[in-house]
Nucleic acid binder design. Structure first.
Length: 154
DNA sequence: GCCAACGTTGGC
DNA sequence: GCCAACGTTGGC
């Protein structure tokens, strides 16, 4: 099983939104970056776990956990000229962008902020704490995952 | 295939 | 709102 971190701006889609979706499940649409797409398409498998990360907001950081429940399939928002994510270069016959379905697992009692993540030497290699790192889907190492889960214990 | 211009991300 | 970092585009 692999571990991931997936960013979303809570103004657009927050962990609370995910929790209130039907079946607590939603497609993760709007990824328009090749490296992030490749991670979804090539490496994400059903049962993988992902941190839900809130970006561009008051309290930036990891807010909970979700699970991958459907492997990659074409991102239909790319075909919709009314969508913010419309991409005329992505055709139904040859879709350029993919998405996965994610299911809510838990919301943490507290946000593990970006500032806090930066404090721990154990996490110094995490992509998310590196300046200018904009990848919206990032792999997380098992030891990093376990360390972060450990922070939640009293 | 290079690279300048441009657009976007996302922390601050 | 600013702007550094980075990805993409398109002329050559």
């Amino acid at each position: 099983m692999k571990y991931w971190l997936m960013k979303s701006e809570p103004n657009t889609f927050s962990i609370d939104d995910l929790e209130t979706m039907k079946n607590q499940t939603e497609h993760w649409d709007g990824i328009r970056n090749y490296q992030a797409r490749n991670y979804m398409r090539d490496d994400m498998r059903i049962g993988d776990k992902a941190f839900f990360y809130h970006s561009n907001c008051d309290v930036i950081g990891i807010v909970g956990i979700m699970e991958i429940v459907r492997e990659s399939y074409p991102d239909f928002t790319a075909f919709d000229s009314m969508s913010n994510y419309f991409d005329p270069k992505s055709k139904i016959e040859t879709p350029r962008w993919m998405m996965v379905d994610v299911k809510f697992v838990e919301k943490f009692k507290r946000t593990i902020s970006l500032n806090e993540l930066k404090e721990y030497p154990q996490l110094k290699d995490m992509l998310v704490i590196k300046r200018g790192q904009r990848l919206s889907i990032q792999p997380v190492q098992k030891n990093e995952w376990d360390f972060i889960i450990g922070l939640l214990k009293p």
